[in-house]
Amino acid sequence: MKVSVDQDACVSSGQCALTADDVFDQRDSDGVVELLDANPPQQRLRDVQSAAAGCPAMAITVRP
Rank of each mutant, 00 (worst) to 15 (best):
D30S: 09
V5L: 05
A51P: 05
P56F: 05
A53W: 02
A57T: 06
D25V: 00
R27W: 02
V48F: 08
K2M: 12
T61L: 10
S29N: 12
V11R: 13
A59I: 00
R46C: 00
R46K: 09
C55G: 03
A52Y: 01
S4V: 07
R46I: 01
C16P: 01
S4D: 06
D8P: 04
K2I: 14
L36N: 05
A17M: 03
C16F: 02
M1K: 14
D21A: 07
V48H: 10
V23S: 08
R63D: 15
D6E: 09
D28Y: 11
P56G: 02
S12M: 08
V62G: 11
A53Q: 05
A17G: 02
R27G: 02
Q7F: 03
S29H: 08
G14A: 08
S13P: 01
Q42E: 15
D6L: 09
V11A: 12
A17S: 10
T61F: 07
C55N: 03
R63F: 09
D6K: 09
S4L: 03
Q43G: 15
V3C: 09
D8F: 14
S29Q: 13
S29P: 01
D21N: 13
E34R: 06
N39M: 04
D47C: 11
M1C: 10
N39F: 07
D47G: 10
V23D: 04
G31T: 10
M58A: 14
P64I: 09
A9L: 15
P56D: 05
F24H: 01
S13D: 04
N39S: 13
M58N: 13
D47Y: 08
L36S: 02
C16G: 01
A17L: 02
P41I: 12
Q15H: 10
L18A: 14
S4W: 02
A20T: 03
L36H: 00
P64Q: 14
C10M: 11
D30R: 06
P41Y: 14
S4N: 05
A51L: 04
A59L: 02
P40Q: 09
S12D: 05
L36Q: 02
L35E: 06
V48L: 11
D47I: 04
P56S: 05
V33H: 03
D30I: 01
S12G: 03
L35M: 06
C10D: 11
Q15R: 08
K2T: 15
G31Q: 11
Q7W: 02
D25W: 00
M58H: 14
